[in-house]
Every structure is written in C-alpha cells, then in structure tokens.
C-alpha cells in the first residue's frame, strides 16, 4: 500500500486533476494506494505518508523525509511520460523499502 499526498498552492484545481491522473496511473499498474489532498504550505508537517506530489513551485522538504516530487507535468501534459516513469520507479523503491522493514 502506497500512501500518496497531492499538494498544490490553492488546494483545489490542480490537486483534483493530478489526483485523477495518479489514480489512473496506479490503477493501471495495479498499485494499491491512498491519495490525500493537502496544501503546499503543509508539506513540512505531513506525517505517516509515503510520497508527496506537488503541482506548484516549492523548495519545501518534509520533516520526516518523505520524498517530494514536482508533478505539474500531469497537469500540463508536457513531460507527462517522463514523470510517470519517475513516479513508478519511486513507488517501486518505496515498496521495496517497506518490504525490507517488515
């Protein structure tokens, strides 16, 4: 189970669209998941999640070290394939780490 956070500046439009795209990608790749919306300003304090995808500009990092990926390409379509590959690789890496930890 991969727990993904989607965060944007306003917490409305791009979050909805990117959530939809991520749902589709993970369904297609048979990845069990949850997706929770947040605001970019909340990034540092998010806990208990596996991966954060943001749709706006940020240099924020998470206090627990949850990886942050810029996923704006899922919104614009520019560079979408590259992002999808990177995203799936990251998910795989996280799943493997989780497997090792028990």
């Amino acid at each position: 189970m991969i727990k993904v956070v989607v965060a944007c500046g306003g917490g409305i439009f791009t979050t909805s669209v990117v959530t939809d795209r991520l749902e589709e990608i993970m369904r297609k790749n048979k990845i069990r998941h949850t997706i929770t919306p947040h605001k970019i300003t909340e990034i540092p304090s998010i806990t208990g999640e596996d991966l954060i995808v943001v749709t706006g500009k940020t240099s924020a990092t998470n206090d627990e070290g949850i990886p942050v990926m810029i996923g704006i390409s899922l919104f614009t379509g520019v560079g979408e394939e590259e992002f999808t590959e990177e995203f799936l690789a990251k998910v795989k890496e996280i799943e493997e780490q989780k497997g090792q930890n028990g």
């Binding site: 944007c8 500046g9 306003g10 970019i40 706006g56 500009k57 704006i72 919104f75 614009t76 379509g77 520019v78």
Partner: peptide, 13 residues
C-alpha cells in the same frame, strides 16, 4: 496573494 505565493504561469504549447 495567491499569484505571489503560488504563481500560475504555465509553459504549455
């Protein structure tokens, strides 16, 4: 304020 904090210019086609 939003535009200052989280700008919305998109370099699409």
């Amino acid at each position: 304020k939003r535009e200052q904090e989280f700008p919305t210019g998109l370099d699409t086609a």
